[in-house]
Amino acid sequence: MDALKSAGRALIRSPSLAKQSWGGGGRHRKLPENWTDTRETLLEGMLFSLKYLGMTLVEQPKGEELSAAAIKRIVATAKASGKKLQKVTLKVSPRGIILTDNLTNQLIENVSIYRISYCTADKMHDKVFAYIAQSQHNQSLECHAFLCTKRKMAQAVTLTVAQAFKVAFEFWQVSKEEKEKRDKASQEGGDVLGARQDCTPPLKSLVATGNLLDLEETAKAPLSTVSANTTNMDEVPRPQALSGSSVVWELDDGLDEAFSRLAQSRTNPQVLDTGLTAQDMHYAQCLSPVDWDKPDSSGTEQDDLFSF
């Protein structure tokens, strides 16, 4: 819950932080000083300027060897085509990944977070970031790969997607708890209302004896509580940590079903599988986004697919 609360507080303090972009060759504004600060901008989305290598189908939802083989196929196909790589912007948030063309600003792909089953910074092609997700059109699994400016960037994108998945799962947990509370309150309110109706004398007997209905007592009954809980029953509950912020979080049926399955089948359902080692994760978390744009010590960066 700490990640969720800190993310909400950060967004309320400075929503404009989320509009910064990394990996864009110096076009961005001043960047936060450390990885923790940038992680807090996830709610509205972190932007990464990358190059799209392509996509291939895979048979399993996750796995280092599986993704490595898929990336190898994608890279080989991209090299064989001889075409310049498409420059894209990857927007990562707890909602998922939005992929747009840098030149036309046209939407290429919009992947809900619950469809993503794996992401990684490839070991062999260490400047490549990739994720595996279920197609929104059918049940097939797709591996999408992107060329980053350097290994640090690939690791940073991988960690960002993993963190977005974690925050999304926490949102789901909060929403589920809130819905259970509202359902319980609604049920209790309905029981109270039913009890009051059972003990209320029939209207005919009131008229016969000349008694008047006590409207004041009726007004004191917990009807307002019942209506408050039943009027918006169809509205999706939102985490309290975000009250007053500009973010509107809505959970669709697909996300609810997917996270429910994860909660039942996995020990740590909030953790998205990645190909990063503990050492890689520690190294990337210690980086400032400013470091992502620094040239690798191995030599001059080449803006070309064939540089790796």
Rank of each mutant, 00 (worst) to 15 (best):
D2M: 07
K5F: 05
A7R: 07
G8Y: 15
G8M: 15
R9N: 10
R9Q: 02
R9S: 08
A10D: 14
L11T: 11
R13C: 07
P15M: 03
P15C: 00
L17Q: 13
A18P: 06
A18R: 10
K19C: 06
K19E: 10
K19V: 14
Q20L: 05
Q20F: 10
S21R: 06
S21M: 02
G24V: 11
G25R: 08
G26T: 10
G26V: 06
R29W: 09
K30D: 05
E33P: 06
N34W: 13
W35T: 15
D37W: 06
D37G: 05
T38S: 15
T38V: 10
R39G: 02
E40V: 14
T41N: 11
L42Q: 12
L42I: 15
L42K: 13
L43E: 14
E44R: 05
G45V: 12
M46H: 09
L47Y: 09
S49I: 15
L50A: 04
G54I: 05
G54F: 05
M55N: 13
T56D: 00
T56E: 10
T56A: 12
V58M: 13
Q60D: 12
Q60I: 10
Q60T: 12
G63E: 11
E64A: 13
S67A: 03
S67K: 03
A68K: 07
A68R: 03
A68C: 01
A70K: 08
V75W: 15
A76Q: 09
A76D: 15
K79Y: 04
K79H: 01
S81A: 08
S81K: 12
K83E: 12
K83Y: 05
K84I: 03
Q86M: 12
Q86S: 14
K87Q: 08
L90E: 14
K91G: 07
K91T: 15
S93I: 03
S93D: 15
P94L: 12
P94Y: 09
R95Q: 10
G96I: 03
G96K: 11
I97V: 15
L99Y: 04
N102E: 04
T104R: 08
N105R: 03
I108N: 05
E109H: 05
Y114W: 02
R115H: 01
R115C: 10
I116H: 06
I116G: 10
T120C: 09
D122V: 14
K123P: 07
H125Y: 10
D126C: 11
V128T: 08
F129W: 11
A130S: 06
Y131M: 06
Q134C: 03
Q134H: 11
N138C: 13
N138E: 13
N138P: 14
Q139F: 08
L141A: 13
C143R: 10
C143I: 04
A145F: 11
F146D: 11
L147I: 11
C148F: 10
T149K: 12
T149H: 08
T158N: 02
T160L: 12
V161W: 06
A162V: 14
A162T: 13
Q163C: 02
A164R: 12
K166L: 03
A168S: 13
A168G: 11
E170G: 11
E170T: 06
F171N: 00
W172Q: 01
V174T: 03
K176G: 07
E177N: 12
E177T: 01
E178R: 15
E178H: 15
E180I: 00
K184C: 04
G189Q: 07
G189Y: 04
G190Y: 02
D191V: 03
V192P: 08
G194N: 09
C199T: 06
C199M: 08
T200D: 03
T200L: 05
T200M: 03
P202I: 02
L203T: 13
L203D: 13
K204F: 13
S205Q: 08
S205F: 02
L206V: 14
T209Q: 09
T209W: 08
T209Y: 05
L215V: 14
L215Q: 00
L215Y: 13
E216T: 01
E216W: 03
E217W: 02
E217V: 04
T218D: 03
T218F: 09
A221Q: 06
A221V: 08
T225K: 10
V226M: 10
S227M: 04
N229P: 02
T231V: 12
M233E: 03
M233T: 07
P239G: 04
Q240D: 03
A241G: 09
L242R: 12
S243I: 14
S245I: 14
S245Y: 10
V248M: 07
W249G: 07
W249R: 13
E250A: 08
L251V: 06
D252M: 10
A258E: 09
S260A: 04
R261H: 07
A263T: 10
A263S: 01
A263I: 07
T267Y: 05
P269C: 02
P269G: 03
Q270M: 06
Q270D: 05
G275C: 15
L276H: 04
T277I: 09
T277H: 06
Q279T: 02
D280M: 09
D280V: 06
A284K: 00
L287W: 13
P289M: 06
P289I: 03
D293M: 06
K294A: 06
K294F: 00
P295L: 14
P295E: 01
D296N: 02
S297D: 04
S298M: 02
E301P: 06
D304L: 10
S307T: 03
